[in-house]
Design a protein around this nucleic acid. Sequence first.
DNA 1: AATGAATGAGGCTTCATTCAT
DNA 2: CATGAATGAAGCCTCATTCAT
Lengths: 193, 193, 193, 193
Amino acid sequence: MKSTKPKYNQIIEAAVKVFAENGYHGSQVSKIAKAAGVADGTIYLYFKNKEDILITVFKEKMGQFIEEIALATGKQVSAEKKLFTLIDMHIKQLSNDHDLAIVTQLELRQSNVTLRRQINQVLKPYLTMIDNIINVGIESKQFRKDINVPLMRQMIFGTLDEIVTNWVMKEHKYDLVSQVPQVHALLIHGLRS
Amino acid sequence: MKSTKPKYNQIIEAAVKVFAENGYHGSQVSKIAKAAGVADGTIYLYFKNKEDILITVFKEKMGQFIEEIALATGKQVSAEKKLFTLIDMHIKQLSNDHDLAIVTQLELRQSNVTLRRQINQVLKPYLTMIDNIINVGIESKQFRKDINVPLMRQMIFGTLDEIVTNWVMKEHKYDLVSQVPQVHALLIHGLRS
Amino acid sequence: MKSTKPKYNQIIEAAVKVFAENGYHGSQVSKIAKAAGVADGTIYLYFKNKEDILITVFKEKMGQFIEEIALATGKQVSAEKKLFTLIDMHIKQLSNDHDLAIVTQLELRQSNVTLRRQINQVLKPYLTMIDNIINVGIESKQFRKDINVPLMRQMIFGTLDEIVTNWVMKEHKYDLVSQVPQVHALLIHGLRS
Amino acid sequence: MKSTKPKYNQIIEAAVKVFAENGYHGSQVSKIAKAAGVADGTIYLYFKNKEDILITVFKEKMGQFIEEIALATGKQVSAEKKLFTLIDMHIKQLSNDHDLAIVTQLELRQSNVTLRRQINQVLKPYLTMIDNIINVGIESKQFRKDINVPLMRQMIFGTLDEIVTNWVMKEHKYDLVSQVPQVHALLIHGLRS
DNA sequence: AATGAATGAGGCTTCATTCAT
DNA sequence: CATGAATGAAGCCTCATTCAT
């Protein structure tokens, strides 16, 4: 059996690279086609339009991203450790794939509201995962019982997102992974001395 | 009151509105000109190009935004109260100006990296302000002394940013201001029960 | 019954239908292939190109159309009756096959001059048949002897063509066949009271 | 006062020429622009899209065409003379403007049904004019009283249309105007000797 | 004979920017 | 200062046709 849908995968991989290097609006379809080694028209055998490429790239890549984190956090029992694992994996995965990080943190936002809504759909399982961890923590009394879960989730996700975006904007010049324990500590203990 | 450069201000105000309603890429220069009641060409007497409109809008509006927060936090002595005031003002100001919130949280991101760097320049004083509050807290021993300041700042800003973005994406359907105390509590105490 | 070249006939029949429903420019080769239940490439085993499908469809269908009329008029002796039969058959055949009527009256004209010349070739025997009827009428003194035959033929054909086109444009909303005697009368007697 | 809308008229004139030479589908917008001596984009300051050029050309030119005929037939009193004038003017005007004739008889038909409906709207006043002439003839008893007016109109228009189309297809190789009296005679007296 | 995935040329249209008035 | 008509580069997408299997 041949590797399934070879052109499809070629296009996906090329798109991540091209989007990362040029941004969404700077990534002409012809440029993606060239990078994928296919004809322009071939793109449209697999994707409805240019926007569809971006959203599909995101779905495929983000699906794996979330899957990995779900798997790893599932192995932990305590909410604190689950949270640590989530932070760790979130940062490690994006640290290891600069192109993907650029796409998720920068290029993906260069899109209209409609597209952003679709992106939010893809992110939903991830956000639900965070909610679940918080709830586990509350039930096990590791976390305060009066926590507003959506707010807390926004804090966790917003913090991770901002940290990775900063790192991408600084062109990956420093090491992110070593900051994981501190991020975890801040989220757990807060600022108060 | 400045009546100087009336057209300039007309354009700025029109641009905020048009960007908020149509997004950056949906805001043709001619649309902004029409909304401002000037000719297309007039725009170019005041702005270098379309990008320049966006960055200028952001500078003007964000300048005021930051100024207000600086003023208010300056009146507080304790770091905790300064932080509370910052959160409060950040959320209140964007709550009160939906158009501005849409521009800062959504449309501004629909831009290339170069533009985003300029935006970061504008944001810098704000981020420094947050850093200063954290440092005051550390010095006064209200905050833990082993805190990584940039990280903490990313957490605070990232949290606020995510919270406001969520609210904008949900089309301002719920009240943000009432959540200020909880946000403050989370940042101060963290998750730990 | 021919079972030879079954695919060929499938394609012809599918093409009439697809052309009638979508027009020439709205009938992609792939759409015809799908309607015919064959692969896109198969079309090119039987037809040189897309234009060739149209002209072939027309030749096949128009051939039958003309053949039927030739047969029926041949059975009549007097020029007037021949003419009546021709009008009758022309209108009846197109009345009975809406798809064909749409193709001949509308879609076929959506083509370039080269194609139209080929169409004229196919029509030639029909026009000659009209000429012959007129000549018979002149010789038998049923028709005026000073008639300009080509002109008269253009009048007869133009009248029929316009009548059918009008009926197609009105989406076949009224009955054509009942008008046959009046059309015949007009052509025979003219306007003069 | 400058000649009004000079570019608009340049485009209209260029379009007639280009359509006549290349057909609708062979007339790229860029080709029309070049022929008009304007930039491609300028076309879109005056026309919604390519189809709009065709329909506008037709409206402008056909409007004049009909106006001229209306004026001339209005000067005649008897129905027969009105009809003669209509035939005469119809054929003379198209005889004198080969490009226009090509556009009306050939290129205009290379369009979809929607467009053709618009064309019919433009033609409507002309068809009404023919109806009126027939009715005048019936009332004055010059024409038979049992005539089906729409049918007669289709005969008149269909005949003229076919005659002009044939002449265009034969590349204007013979003289049309001299046939006017014969056409008129045929329509008035019919075939019967 | 049949397939259908792949090709790639080609065209309509948009819109930021300019410049003569 | 202000205008707004004009520009023209640039890009997404379609679809007739091919060819390896």
